[in-house]
Design a protein around this nucleic acid. Structure first.
Lengths: 203, 203
DNA sequence: ATTTCCATGTGAATTCATTAACAAAGTTAA
DNA sequence: TTAACTTTGTTAATGAATTCACATGGAAAT
């Protein structure tokens, strides 16, 4: 089953919510309750879940634990995927704080920075290296994805190095549109654009 | 003209690109060239621009400077909107680094943290205060929007305080779904979800 | 001057996403 | 047992977003 970007975004969001509920001891949920969490409709939730093949039961709704497993089977890679992060400034450190270990299939294992004072340290299980070691570490550690949190001036050049080194996807926090081959998946997260959107819609 | 979230997102993205081009001395652009920057189609670009009422000329395309003005007239608030940021950890500082002064109508002027060592400092023109002063500063400085970059455990409570203090919109970087009245506009930016999406689509 | 390019603006067509609606089925209560 | 609820899964209907396609018109070349 092929699903769109939007469905994937909602599925991973559902999973996050379901994981929190499970931690709180909740074991079952109805489509309308899950919909409420994400400001969506029961029909939308049911359709999304239909996509991944999981089936709930009438009256009892969905078993949270089983639903989490089904979502994970669908959205997670079969093998773990290794991720690196480039740039250990405030943003890089923040991402390591937040991304730490919520998904066992996605591991941020290496960090790179050009500042020697930021190398050879370990943050949340992620070790940092000098940017000179980028290519060799990516190959040795079988890294496939990268998070880019470097200043604008360096983003394009680093992105190109990443791709030459074999990276398949980039989560880009640098506020610049990278010009890369189309077979590379890039997700841009410009914080100022997000704020401009909020400013427009907050009445 | 009422436009959707997606159109607004594209418009602010176009503006960013156009501003960079203008800085580089480029003065005109065609819909297909702008489309290439954002991996979109000429038709999409033309339709988006149609929404805001600006008209280009055949053969010469769009005047970048005029188009920027038209987008700004459309998406920017009429008066400046003041923004505060809650949480001056790595993420808060990162946001202040990145968001600094790209849009003159949106000013991040106050920051708050519960850690006294992070108060009474100034970063990029944004002054920091103790979280105790949240309500009074929001009122005195006429702050309407907030960026939330606090740990999960504090996010919901802080968000409720913000709303009681009169905040209209929240850009939420805490990886939790806030439960707030529906008249509050909330934009969630969960970094781990973004990475999960990249992991799914990067082939 | 005439022809040939191109690019825009926009109505129409198409594709994609969401919602409605209802049969099926488990549960509860009488 | 039977009737009344409630919720799912799914098809059909609706609605939204995108793309097509072409009339229009300015510029350059012959």
């Amino acid at each position: 089953m092929i699903v769109s970007e939007r469905v994937i975004q909602r599925l991973v969001l559902y999973r996050k919510i379901l994981q929190n509920l499970l931690t709180d001891g909740v074991t079952k949920i109805y489509s309308h309750a899950l919909g409420d969490f994400v400001d969506s409709t029961p029909a939308q939730v049911r359709r999304d879940i239909m996509n991944i093949g999981y089936k709930g039961t009438p009256v009892h709704g969905y078993d949270i634990s089983l639903l989490i497993s089904s979502i994970s089977d669908f959205v997670d890679p079969t093998q773990t995927r290794n991720v690196c992060i480039i740039g250990l400034g405030n943003l890089g450190k923040a991402i390591l704080d937040y991304c730490h270990a919520r998904n066992s299939k996605i591991n941020i294992i290496d960090a790179f920075d050009k500042d020697p004072s930021k190398t050879n340290i370990e943050i949340n299980g992620c070790k940092s290296y000098h940017i000179n070691e980028l290519e060799t570490k990516i190959e040795d550690d079988r890294i496939e994805l990268a998070i880019l949190s470097v200043p604008i001036s360096e983003a394009q050049a680093i992105a190109e190095r990443l791709i030459r080194a074999g990276i398949k996807g980039i989560l880009n926090y640098s506020p610049i549109e990278l010009r890369l081959p189309e077979y590379i998946y890039v997700e841009n997260r410009d914080m100022m654009l997000a704020l401009e959107k909020v400013a427009y819609f907050a009445k």
